[in-house]
Each structure stands twice: as C-alpha cells, then as structure tokens.
Amino acid sequence: MKPFTYERAATPADAAASAARTPGARFIGGGTNLLDLMKLQIETPPHLIDVGHLKLDRIEDTPEGGLRIGAHVTNTALASDARVRRDYGVVSRAIVAGASGQLRNKATTAGNLLQRTRCPYFYDTNQPCNKRKPGSGCGAIGGYSRQLAVIGTSDACIATYPGDMAVAMRVLDATVETVSPGGAKRAIPIADFHRLPGSTPHIETTLVPGEVITAVTLPKPIGGTQMYLKVRDRASYAFALVSVAAVIQRDGSGRVAVGGIAHKPWRVEAAEADMPRGAKAVAARLLAGAKPTQDNAFKIPLVERTLAAALAEAKAA
C-alpha cells in the first residue's frame, strides 16, 4: 500500500469536485475491494475520498412506483429490505449469493457496481495486464482463463465483471444516478454503465473522472418468478462461473441477464423473444458471436443449461 491522503466528503458535489482536483483520487465506500487492491498496489490512489457520510444510505419509493437505493446502502440492508424481497426478489437473491455476511455488511450499492475483475493476471503485478497497466499485454489470453469471459472480449482483455447484484439490476433495467464534478446530475441506464474492454480495458464504466454515484433506481415492479442461479465450484463464497438472473412470467415470456461471462452483465433483449421456445433458442442468440478459450468453452453449454434450470424452476413455481 502506498501512502495516501484521506478526506471525508460532506456532499456528493463536494466529493466530485475534490476528485476532479486530485488526479488518481478514488472514492471509498465499504472498501471491501479497493483496500485489497491497494495492499497489492494494483490500485495506488494518492488520495481517498470517503463517500460513506453523504446520507446516501436510504431506500425510498419513487414517484414512478419504483425504488431509489442510496449509493451507500449496504448489500445486507438492500438484500433484506422488505420491499426488495417482495418486489425485486432477483436483487435480493443475487446479493446473498455473493461474498460473505461480513463483506455484505460493509459492501455498498455503488461500490458493488464498481467491483473490479478477479482475473488472476490482473491480481499479480508481475504479470502483463492491459487493465492494470495499459499497453503491457494480456496475460490471460493464452494463459489460465477458466473463469474468464467468453463474449464481448477483445484482443486486449478477456476479464469478466465479477459481481452478482449488477446482473440482477441489469435484468430489471435499473438506472444509475450520478453527480459530476461540475454539479451536473445524470441518469445512466445500467445497460450503458459497464463497458466492454475494447482497446481500453482499464476504462470499465462510462463514468467520467470525478463523477459520483448517488443512487440506483429500480423501475416499478414487473412481477414474475424472479430467480438468481449462481453456478460455481464450491457451494458458497466463490465467484460465478456462470450466473443467470431471470424474471419469468406466467405466459412463458421473460427476461434474462447472465453474469460471469463478459466484461459486463450480459443481456441481449432481442434473445428474450425466444423465451417461450426454451433455453436453447435463447442461449443461441444470447451467446451469438461468443469467442471462448479452450479453458472456458464449457460456459457456453453451461449458460444454456443454467437457463434451462431457471425455466424449469419457473414452470414449477
């Protein structure tokens, strides 16, 4: 860990302004990912801006009939909220499928969206990684890539976005609310929030430097059977090989987003038209153009089979 300075921001706008003043500054929420990365010198911010005291820790109803989740609402609070459990079960289930109770007590809604990849080459500073050190190359391509992305990849990066909550939010068409250093507010559809790696895998979201997340809003409830199936090598406390967030309606229509296969939560709305035809048809369109490695080619059939399990579960519900 490199020495750094620390401040506690008073308002979101102050936090954004401060970040704009200090190149390389990072916001710190729960710190469950950032502090680990700082210890390994994967992140070396000279300045930390604590956004944990901005009164962004409430879950409120929106005029549109949805929910507005403050950026600093913890994973535990969000997953256990009665409205979330009743109307947005997929979010609650996704959150409790991740990390551990202790981590979820600290982890925040905004921080969770910004969780960085778990690619082992990103984590080892001796290895090339375009995400950690732009231009150094990608160690994972041609290396150990079992966990990594199968679609939306580039020649520069095959890392995955590792989180669970965002996959559920993607299937619900959540919106990320922000404040920019200039004070401007904007609402980013979650579909546009995470980027594909392209030639700049170190730029992971569409946030501009200094932009602060203030909330995530969920549209009004869409009902249906809401599921989050997370497939992994051990029963708990592991990142997804593949995860499926699905909302299936009685008539067989539905939505699906997939985690563990791309640089962002993966959803292809056009594929959902095939939902009544079954998992095979949906998966074929969802994964069209996939370029798996030898190590992770199993994710292609695994997505289809996990979706089939979700559809079967919905039918039985």
Binding site: R118, G143, R234, A235, A238
Partner: peptide, 22 residues
C-alpha cells in the same frame, strides 16, 4: 501457467478449498 511457469491462482480467492456449505 505453462508459458510463464507459475501457479496462477495463488490466493484463497483463486485456490478454492471447501467452505462450510460444502
């Protein structure tokens, strides 16, 4: 990693051992 000659998953997030749920 057969190119660089090292054990890649060298922490307890990458090298999984059973947890209680297993």
């Amino acid at each position: 990693d057969k190119r660089f000659g090292f054990f890649v998953n060298h922490d307890l997030a990458g090298y999984e051992v059973p947890v209680h749920a297993d």
